[in-house]
Design a protein around this nucleic acid. Structure first.
Lengths: 246, 246
DNA sequence: ATCTATTTGTACGTATGTATT
DNA sequence: AAATACATACGTACAAATAGA
């Protein structure tokens, strides 16, 4: 019940504050380990605990050797999504939860991108589509197709000007992957999901190219509705199977 | 270039895997420190580094004393939002980015809650509104009002059945707070933002109570639009001031 | 290209503190 | 009050990485 703070926390907080008050940017140098030892009058171990804590959060990076030390670091998207996944691990998300959000956000992005994509961006999207244009012949291929299709959505999100919106969309895709993998929703192969998804993506790309914002929005919305329906069907089928044979 | 892994990481990963493969739930016990020391044949310090790593991620909790030890722990929402904030620290979000998402998600939640709130839930919402029903007399009060108003939105999000949607909305509110605080958007006091926000919240509560889903949705959407406009105005004013006097 | 100095990283052992039964 | 089990912190020794001579 005291306001006592552990020494490692004091050091970590001080370094964090330093970044804010001195307006440090990624790549900027922080005091060396030996400096901190002297400044705080603490042992090497204690100081290292502090930097390790910040490193675990992805806020700093340390390098060994001459000219090495602690540097401000931008937290990576991958690590952030991983940490978010931990939070939702026990939350038992279901398909509909995810699609409720996707149905709202994905059409918005599609609409905002219509007519605003550069040639090389369209090229990239086409390239991604080509990764899943062939009919999947087995479960493994189906899974890979599914992953690539989600990459298509992630790519659209990256092209959006709103990094916050882009992040949320990519996170939704990640959660969807985790849910499908956890519940083994890839057996049997979902031919219809692949086939209709591919069609939607192609249509969407055309609408984006000609700059028809409303059409792009509409296609994406329908795409989300159909995908949700098919995944729910798959889910129902899998759970029936589990009841029968599990 | 080797697949060498630090001993602490090996221990941490092994424990993580244990949670997944044994399908452990929050509160379940993990091996005690002394057990792990024997099992891995490592020093106490090394083992502690591993558990500390997992604790930093919020995945486990350790308790001292007899019967103490490591326990599986559900990552807290607060901590998760804090980690997410780190990610966006260098991303330079702006008001419009945040409101683009709020305008899509908040009305959806409002609509879904109409007619579905229990009496005690309505009571809680009323109580929160009472926290900012008096006119703010100074900057500090204005800031507190603003915080309480965001709590109102967070509470609605909690009442939604979709925990994912609720989380995203609460995160948006948090980002909004950080942006306003960082850019010192609280001076001068934004009387209009408070006044109109209060009115919208009251109207919304009525719509939720009588179960008019469409009206609730519409009110919330308008609320978002007005709030965005007022905050952008405030932002423009602040930046003008900075140019003149900064 | 090798050696050297520098700077962080890992691990151990130990002493003492704190929380819980 | 005592026993238990984790928490914090220190100091030390050696390992690994790296820049520069």
């Amino acid at each position: 019940m005291s306001s006592y703070k552990k020494r490692t926390i004091i050091v970590a907080d001080t370094i964090k504050q330093m970044v804010v008050t001195e307006n440090l940017k990624p790549g900027d140098r922080l005091p060396a380990e030996t400096d901190l030892i002297q400044r705080f009058k603490m042992s090497k171990g204690t100081i290292r605990e502090a930097t390790r804590l910040l490193e675990a959060q992805g806020l700093i990076k340390t390098r060994t050797g001459p000219g090495g030390g602690c540097f401000v670091h931008e937290v990576s998207e991958l690590r952030t999504i991983a940490l978010l996944s931990n939070y939702f691990y026990f939350k038992n998300l279901n398909i509909s939860d995810i699609y409720q959000i996707r149905k709202l956000l994905e059409p918005e992005v599609a609409g905002s991108l219509a007519g605003n994509l550069k040639k090389d961006q369209l090229k990239i999207l086409n390239l991604i589509i080509s990764e899943y244009q062939e009919e999947p012949l087995n479960e493994e291929q189906d899974r890979l197709h599914h992953e690539s299709a989600l990459k298509f959505h992630g790519c659209l999100a990256d092209f959006a000007n709103n990094s916050l919106l882009g992040f949320v969309i990519k996170f939704m895709a990640q959660m969807l992957t985790e849910v499908t993998v956890n519940r083994k929703l890839f057996r049997p192969t979902n031919y219809e999901l692949w086939r209709r998804g591919l069609d939607f993506h192609r249509e969407l790309l055309t609408a984006l190219e000609i700059g028809d914002s409303n059409k792009a929005k509409k296609i994406m919305y329908e795409h989300m509705c159909v995908a949700e329906k098919l995944m729910l069907k798959q889910e129902a089928m899998v759970s029936t199977k589990l009841k029968e044979f599990g």
